[in-house]
Nucleic acid binder design. Structure first.
Length: 223
DNA sequence: ATCCCGAGGG
DNA sequence: CCCTCTGGAT
């Protein structure tokens, strides 16, 4: 097999076919594929902070009430932390999340009240890491950004997109597989597939449209 | 018992 | 690298 430091071309084709099938399975833009409810970039950021170790459905149950009282940087910055904690309690990690939400709103205000629209500014906000920043970039600002969460990490390994475990390195590897404008949607598609089909505990390989291209399934089926 | 669109701190 | 933070769903 020819591989002089370049990737095998059949491997490139396999990956491209997986990406094409994911696009057919979950069509739409990052904005359309995102299942968090929000009406401003600031609200998406707040919802994404809440989504840590929690389902989107659960986040969407608490954000209407949260945004009713604290839907803007100004309102959230001066919120009573106990009140915020009570509203978001069911999303888990609620002490940290309430503290982070209020601190985040205050740092937005200190920065002039406008949410940053690049990685540097976003990830410098309290409680905002690279994954959350990439969600806001791709979904709210329609910019290149490829959030690597637990699903993207798991599927990237199973599908043979990476052998690494560092989410930043995986992000850079995945970046090379799609044009910039498709990065956010690829992440969302892997997340949706990870939730519905390639489930962490019990992958539904029999129902998976990618199984014939999946090294993990092929290895499993080989006996 | 294990997992859910993580981030901060040691 | 590790640990902690947390409730809800399966």
């Amino acid at each position: 097999m020819i591989n002089d430091g370049f990737r095998d071309s059949s491997e490139d084709e396999r990956r491209a076919e997986i990406i094409a099938r994911l696009r057919d399975l979950y069509p739409g833009t990052a904005r359309e594929l995102c299942e968090l409810d929000f009406s401003t970039p600031f609200q998406l950021l707040a919802a994404t902070i809440l989504s840590a170790q929690c389902t989107d459905k659960r986040v969407n149950m608490v954000t209407p009430k949260l945004f009713e009282s604290y839907g803007t940087p100004t309102l959230l910055a001066s919120a009573d932390i106990v009140d915020v904690e009570e509203i978001i309690k069911s999303t888990g990690f609620y002490h940290n999340k309430a503290k982070n939400l209020i601190a985040m709103a205050r740092s937005v205000l200190e920065g002039g009240g406008e949410l940053p629209n690049e990685m540097e500014g976003l990830s410098s906000l309290a409680g905002v890491g690279r994954k959350t920043a990439n969600v806001v970039l791709s979904v709210a600002f329609d910019k290149p950004g490829l959030p690597v969460d637990t699903h993207v990490m798991r599927l990237s390994k199973l599908l043979g997109f990476t052998t690494l475990s560092d989410p930043v390195k995986i992000e850079l590897e995945l970046n090379e597989m799609v044009p910039p404008r498709d990065r956010g949607a690829l992440s969302l598609r892997m997340i949706l597939h990870g939730r519905a089909v390639c489930v962490a505990r019990k992958p539904r390989c029999h129902a998976c449209a990618l199984a014939d291209l999946c090294p993990a399934f092929i290895a499993l089926a080989k006996d």
